[in-house]
Each structure stands twice: as C-alpha cells, then as structure tokens.
Simulated scan of single mutants.
Amino acid sequence: MKITIIAGARPNFMKIAPIIDAIELRQQQGYPISYRLVHTGQHYDANMSQSFFEQLGIPQPHVNLEAGGGSQAEQTAGIMVKFEKDLAAHPCDLVLVVGDVTSTLACSIVAKKMKIKVAHVEAGIRSGDQHMPEEINRMVTDAITDYFFTTSEIANGQLRREGKTAEQLFFVGNTMIDTLLKHRSRFHAPPVWRDAGLQPQQYLVMTLHRPANVDEEAHLGLLISEIMRNNHGLPVVFPVHPRTAKQLERIAVAHPRLHLTPPMGYLEFNYLVERAKAVITDSGGITEETTVMGVPCMTLRDSTERPETCTIGTNVLLGTDPAALGPAMEQLFAGDWKKGDIPPLWDGHAAERIADCFVKLFKLEHQSATVA
C-alpha cells in the first residue's frame, strides 16, 4: 500500500509525526506499506513549520509544494494545482489528510477527483460554527472521505448521523497526544523563562489568533486589558501568531507583566504550558494538550469542536465577551478550577492503531483484487 501523507500547517506536524513512526515500524516488520510526505507549504515561516520538523524528528518531506500565502481561495487553488501535478507524477493507493486546515480540504478534493481514496485523521469533529474556515474544511473533507480515524465517540456519533458506515469508522484516539507524551521529557525552557524570571504556577500563557478575537482592534485591546487586570499580578506570556502581531502593532499594547514573544517551537511552548497556572487561548489543539497535562484552560470561543476537553478535561468555554474573564480568573485563583480527566484512548498509541488499520485495509484491498 502506497500512502501519500499531507502536511501543511503547524497543527498538522504534531499529528503526522507519530503516524510516520508507526508506518516505518510496520515496514521494519515486513508489511508492504510505504509513504510519501507532501508538505504543501501552507505555513512557510520557520517558526511555524521547519522547527517542528526538526524538534519532532519528522523526515524531510519528499516535496514542498510551496503554496503558502494569499487569500483563502488563492491558497486553496494554489495547493490544488500543485498537488494535482505531484499526485499524477507519484500515484498512490491512499491520500492521508489530518486535521482541518486549508491543505486538508484542498488535497482531499484533488485525490477524490483523481479516483484515489482518502483517509482523514481527526475526522468527525464539529464546532457548529460555519464562520470558522476550519469548520468548512472539516465538513467538506468528511463529505468525500473514505476512511475516518476519530479521536472520540462524539466524533463517531457525528459521522454516523452523516451516513457513514461502521466499516468506515476507526476510533483510534488522538495522535497529537502521541506526540505530546513521546516528547514530554524533552520539553525545555524558552528564553522568556529566564528573561522574565518565571516560576512554576506563577504565570499565565495566552494565545489568540481567531478573527472573532483579534480582527477588531478595540475588542483585542479589551481582552488583553481584562486579562492583565484580573491576573492577580502574575506575568502573562503571549507567543504572538503572525495574524495577531499586525493588530498588536496598531493598538500599541504594552504592560510590564505582559511578555510578547515570537511563535515558539513545540518543545519550548509546551514547557511553558505544562508549568503554567493556566492557559487562555482560542486554539482547539492547545485545549487537548492542557487536558492531558492537567492545566486549567480558558477558551475564548463560543463553541468548540473538542467538547471532551470541557466535559472530561480541564477546559472551560468562556465565549468572546471580555467580561467573562474576571469571574473565571477568580475561580482559578480561589482554587476551584475542575481537576479534569483524560479522554478514552488519549494514551499515546493512536498512531499505532492507525498503522494497524492500514495493514487491515491493505489485506482487504488485496483480497478484493484477488477475487476480482
């Protein structure tokens, strides 16, 4: 079985790393499975892309399509045009896409139009908010996918309601947690740890990048003001996404306890998260990591595609109203934040289960071809 693996943006890299490891292990065991890694170039900044390959031990991609930049439509079209040519030159049995970024959607469409089957890792998750580009990506990708690798029974239920069959669904767990657990012992402090004199449990980590939070300058300013006003005097470390950096320049945010940094590598960022008093974010993936590490998490969104981080884990949805931050902070500093637990199969072995599914699918395809 020849598998083409698609990666294009920072969230993808954490999810494909353990899958590649698991495929290579099956190869060593004699299974006829091979892969080709295609980097679409959606994230082309070194801190958003290259550092993740280096830190997570991901092999250099067989090709980088260099299709980053431009509007949503331009980027989607650029990836599709370049991937179509690459796939024609390097045909495969299965295209594996992960997550919900533009690359996921674009490459799924190309593969299906070229009559190649698609498997989706992290399938079936939904926020219910179609104003998010990621939600459109998830819905369209799952509408044409052949095999669905899911992180929860909630996702399974969603896919069943959409008409997917039991034979298409594989509840395998969360590959991003595979990466987290594998590399946890390698986390190391970024420069801000020393420069700001940080101490465990005595600072907050913040990330913001979604349009609802950062596109309006006044709203972004209010969010930051509320966080700094209610944080009981603790430092706040804010690795700034490129999208957010442009807005921060306009509103000239400055506070002695607010530490703005460039985007961090995986090992440095999670060192901070693991030791933080709490995390304030609008990222979905970070809520999964805080859940597994037992770190309180406040999500500045009205909905989430990862409800298990709220029902089982340490995450709480606050919405986008800055006024919600004060009461949440008081609960945190009163010691009343929920302890949380770890969702089923978030155990570090999801990629192994996916590789086992590849073996089974190969056997089924081989049997079908023999019968035919």
Rank of each mutant, 00 (worst) to 15 (best):
residue 102 T to L: 08
residue 111 A to G: 13
residue 53 F to E: 06
residue 55 Q to N: 00
residue 314 T to A: 04
residue 134 E to T: 07
residue 324 A to F: 06
residue 204 L to M: 08
residue 133 P to S: 10
residue 67 A to W: 06
residue 300 L to R: 03
residue 81 V to C: 04
residue 343 P to E: 14
residue 226 E to N: 15
residue 341 D to E: 15
residue 333 F to K: 15
residue 340 G to M: 09
residue 201 Q to E: 05
residue 140 V to L: 10
residue 190 P to K: 06
residue 297 C to A: 05
residue 55 Q to Y: 00
residue 37 L to W: 11
residue 189 A to W: 09
residue 138 R to A: 00
residue 19 I to W: 06
residue 80 M to V: 11
residue 183 H to Q: 00
residue 32 P to I: 06
residue 194 R to I: 10
residue 369 A to E: 12
residue 131 H to W: 15
residue 205 V to P: 00
residue 307 P to R: 09
residue 150 T to Y: 01
residue 100 D to P: 04
residue 362 F to C: 08
residue 269 F to A: 08
residue 18 P to I: 01
residue 19 I to Q: 03
residue 52 F to A: 01
residue 25 L to P: 02
residue 275 R to V: 03
residue 25 L to I: 10
residue 84 E to H: 11
residue 192 V to W: 06
residue 134 E to D: 03
residue 138 R to G: 02
residue 336 D to A: 15
residue 280 I to C: 10
residue 58 I to D: 09
residue 317 L to A: 08
residue 91 P to S: 13
residue 298 M to H: 12
residue 292 V to T: 08
residue 263 P to V: 05
residue 174 N to D: 08
residue 300 L to C: 01
residue 234 L to M: 14
residue 330 E to N: 13
residue 324 A to P: 05
residue 311 T to E: 11
residue 113 K to P: 07
residue 48 M to Q: 09
residue 262 P to D: 09
residue 338 K to L: 10
residue 251 I to H: 11
residue 66 E to D: 15
residue 151 T to M: 06
residue 45 D to L: 05
residue 263 P to M: 07
residue 155 A to W: 04
residue 220 L to D: 08
residue 175 T to W: 07
residue 190 P to E: 02
residue 130 Q to D: 09
residue 165 T to H: 13
residue 185 S to T: 07
residue 215 D to R: 03
residue 152 S to I: 14
residue 21 D to P: 00
residue 311 T to H: 05
residue 149 F to E: 07
residue 322 P to E: 03
residue 189 A to Q: 08
residue 328 A to S: 13
residue 287 T to I: 04
residue 16 I to R: 10
residue 312 I to V: 15
residue 58 I to G: 07
residue 329 M to Q: 13
residue 349 H to M: 06
residue 46 A to K: 07
residue 183 H to Y: 00
residue 245 A to I: 07
residue 274 E to F: 00
residue 250 R to A: 13
residue 63 V to H: 12
residue 311 T to C: 03
residue 366 H to A: 12
residue 95 V to M: 09
residue 367 Q to A: 15
residue 169 L to F: 06
residue 119 A to K: 01
residue 307 P to C: 09
residue 362 F to Y: 13
residue 262 P to M: 08
residue 63 V to D: 15
residue 261 T to I: 05
residue 230 N to G: 14
residue 155 A to I: 02
residue 211 P to S: 08
